[in-house]
């Protein structure tokens, strides 16, 4: 009975809705989630509370923020990749020191590249390029993701977290540069008429307290948007 009922079925072409349309996809569903989650819902800075130090120190201008963001994204992606490739060979007792040496080697490469190609920005970033080593995002992703997952997904996770970090860095950088010095990427954006009317640049934004308060407000906005609340 069942066979007879099923027999005519192959004659009619299958409905297009029954099967997903075959198209070239770079990322599968899970990979895409791995990549996209850190951008908003699971953002490394506002949600996981990792990597705050450099997020505040390099954001007085958008230019330095962008360079730092690129450096951190590249280093995070590569370190996740390398650690994930080595994950079965690393003895668990010395894994921290192995991870640190992988990260430190990559940061040295990044530092040399920055010194070679954008020397003046590398001078402005000063010690904070070296401090990428102790940026908690790198250790956090290495320990929390790359040690358990295959290389390609770890790489995506690293890059995704790097982009999530970059997003926050550039937002804070833009606010601090516009409010603090009236410029954006070095161009004057606040019209002269406003200064003539008595507007003044907010010096506080360039200093440390402005950065802290701005990040606090940004976290508030982001968490109110995603509806996440920490228990106090």
């Amino acid at each position: 009975m069942i066979q007879m009922a099923a027999a005519p079925a192959p004659q009619t072409p299958p409905k297009p809705a029954a099967q997903p349309k075959p198209r070239l996809r770079l990322l599968s569903g899970a990979d895409k989630r791995t990549f996209m989650d850190p951008l908003s819902d699971n953002n490394p800075i506002t949600r996981q509370v990792l990597g705050i130090c450099s997020a505040l120190a390099v954001t007085t201008q958008v230019r330095t923020a962008v360079v730092m963001a690129i450096a951190v994204t590249v280093v995070t992606g590569l370190s996740s990749l390398v650690i994930s490739v080595m994950r079965n060979a690393i003895p668990s007792k010395i894994r921290i020191i192995v991870q640190l040496s992988v990260i430190a080697s990559l940061v040295i490469v990044a530092d040399q590249v920055l010194k070679a190609f954008v020397f003046d920005i590398s001078r402005q970033l000063s010690v904070f390029v070296g401090l990428i080593i102790t940026n908690c995002i790198l250790m956090g992703r290495a320990e929390g993701f790359a040690m358990q997952n295959p290389p390609w997904r770890s790489f995506l996770d690293g890059i995704g977290n790097g982009f999530g970090y970059s997003l926050i860095l550039i937002i804070i950088g833009a606010f601090r540069e516009v409010l603090g010095s009236g410029t954006l990427l070095g161009f004057h954006v606040v019209p002269k008429a406003l200064y003539a009317a008595g507007y003044a640049n907010m010096g506080l934004m360039v200093l440390a307290p402005g950065a802290f308060i701005l990040l606090g407000l940004l976290v508030w906005a982001q968490r109110a948007h995603t509806g996440y609340a920490e228990e106090s």
């Binding site: 506002t46 407000l217 976290v219 508030w220």
Partner: peptide, 11 residues
């Protein structure tokens, strides 16, 4: 609620 933890600490 959204300000608890990280937000208020940063402020």
């Amino acid at each position: 609620p959204a300000l608890r933890g990280l937000g208020i600490t940063m402020l």
